[in-house]
Design a protein around this nucleic acid. Sequence first.
DNA 1: CAGCTCTTCCAAAACGTTTCGGATGGCATT
DNA 2: AATGCCATCCGAAACGTTTTGGAAGAGCTG
Lengths: 335, 335
Amino acid sequence: MSSLRELARMLGLSITTVSRALDGYGDVAVATRERVLAAAETTGYRPNSAARRLRRGLTEIVTMVLPAEPGHFNEPLYIELLRSTGERLAQQGYDLTLIAALPGPDELKTYRRLIEGRRTDAIIVVRTRREDARLRYLTDIGFPFVAMGRSDFAEPYAYVDGDGEAAFHDAALRLTGLGHRRIGHLAAPSAFTFAHLRRSGFARAMRDAGLPGEIVEDSATEAGGYRAASVMLAQAEPPSALLCATDSMALGAMRAVRERGLVAGRDIAIIGHDNIPAAAFSDPALATMELPIAATGRRLAEMALARIGGADPRDMTEINPVEFIPRASLGEARG
Amino acid sequence: MSSLRELARMLGLSITTVSRALDGYGDVAVATRERVLAAAETTGYRPNSAARRLRRGLTEIVTMVLPAEPGHFNEPLYIELLRSTGERLAQQGYDLTLIAALPGPDELKTYRRLIEGRRTDAIIVVRTRREDARLRYLTDIGFPFVAMGRSDFAEPYAYVDGDGEAAFHDAALRLTGLGHRRIGHLAAPSAFTFAHLRRSGFARAMRDAGLPGEIVEDSATEAGGYRAASVMLAQAEPPSALLCATDSMALGAMRAVRERGLVAGRDIAIIGHDNIPAAAFSDPALATMELPIAATGRRLAEMALARIGGADPRDMTEINPVEFIPRASLGEARG
DNA sequence: CAGCTCTTCCAAAACGTTTCGGATGGCATT
DNA sequence: AATGCCATCCGAAACGTTTTGGAAGAGCTG
């Protein structure tokens, strides 16, 4: 049956009672409730979502806005994130919608269309930037949102992030522990908070160890890693270890290393971050770091639901540890 | 302004007229229409989507159901597909929602929840299988859907696919043309149509060339490719060329090749399919094939919209050519 | 038995849009 | 002056749900 009215007529009850029985209100006799539930089950009744959304003023939709820079979009991470977030939302009857927005002046337009057209109850912002107009806008209008990643934003907001600063600090110290003295960092564009934090962790470790520590910045892709590594290796005294902001960059760096006749894991240590599937099968296998992405997706979903329910974002800030995954590209301790 | 009523009151017009002016009906004076449009613009009026959805009986939502096999989900292709499909839908004011469904007995439940709860106007099915209960179900109940990939399904349905059969046939002949006589195919699970077609193309080429042609099947992942290649290379007379169903498998195969002391591109040719970003940066760079994925996503969106409009699926079948991308792993012609 | 409380049920309003079926008035036609 | 025809506008219904504010009856109390 497609409507509450039909179901009510069929049961000889009012629409009100059927509705309240289905929603589990207390003012319906147990026998009645069971009769209603049974009938709903056998007829396969599903409430019309548009009607309930109109009436309740909720869309039961959460939207994730993905960065749509051409070529930068295809990070395997995001699909896993979508999957885990979507599954968690589905448990509460929420749908996950997805839109792509190019960073730039029109970016906020996308958000406005979503919000003012009441197309979503909450927004999940990914790939946060240090200066992020999106967080400013969403905070100003008081719209519920959750960020994956942090930002240099003064007001409180809900976020989940990996502790990239600590992870890169520790990874760099791991390299000095193996005897490396010239260590390079292939950084991603520092406008992105994740890139900035990883770079800071690296820099702090270099200060701790009293080493110079070189940094070259490029885009967070294989091509960017290739370019950055090429620059670094062209120096008079090239580094003996490369700590890369992402696995994609590390895979690009590996090619630059090969092209100069060096062997990763023997002549030069390489470490990435993300643990993408290809990392375990590169030559040599890429040492990397991993954030529990499925858990992150679930937490984002839960936080979004909590924000919709009016919860205070102050209580929703989570920085998770990153696991180091040693592989052949890390190499041995050196004399 | 948040409602049509407020806008109408402000303009001294009826709700009807404002609504019809905004929708561009002909029975509104030009001057009035312009006045209404201007007011809507300055007040930032956006129609409440729940209300219009309820009234029109359309959700303005298209849903893509992604295969959620753990670990198999993260193919970079899908995110590019989501992006291009989503963008095209957004042009028509449609949102793209995303759900993950595990293949299996409960799979159809997910579809039922979507359809019976009127949460979507059309469904995009990806990763079609040869025997695909989803197409049967959707066809039986007459719900608009579009498939990415084909199926052994007798009734007409709308789909976009790459011509994997021809692509693998041609790639195999390219290998024989280079002088290869023992060619192996690393196949993906043949329950998937794409895997079956690629395998068929390979087999046809082998028949054309009068060569045996070996096939080992495993999952479409790096690990699967590694296992399948290991089996194949353990033979007394191992093949001199590996044609792999996907790039992920090819990257796994490369590791198996290395472990046996062979050099891809010199001792053994390797070809993949998909042109994932990592393919250009493997050692050696992986020869592969590419389907125009963004165009595919756009076509899926357009077909979904056409099906919602009642168009006949018979007119919506598209098989696109696949482009071969030669790289170092293809090797040279052999004596 | 009047008065009260509880349980169980329901009528009707409301959410904001689209659309059906006119209503109104001006103008040209006869 | 009556008629018909446009162009322009509008009232009211409808979409299917949730929720407010009771109503009806049963059972208990004094």
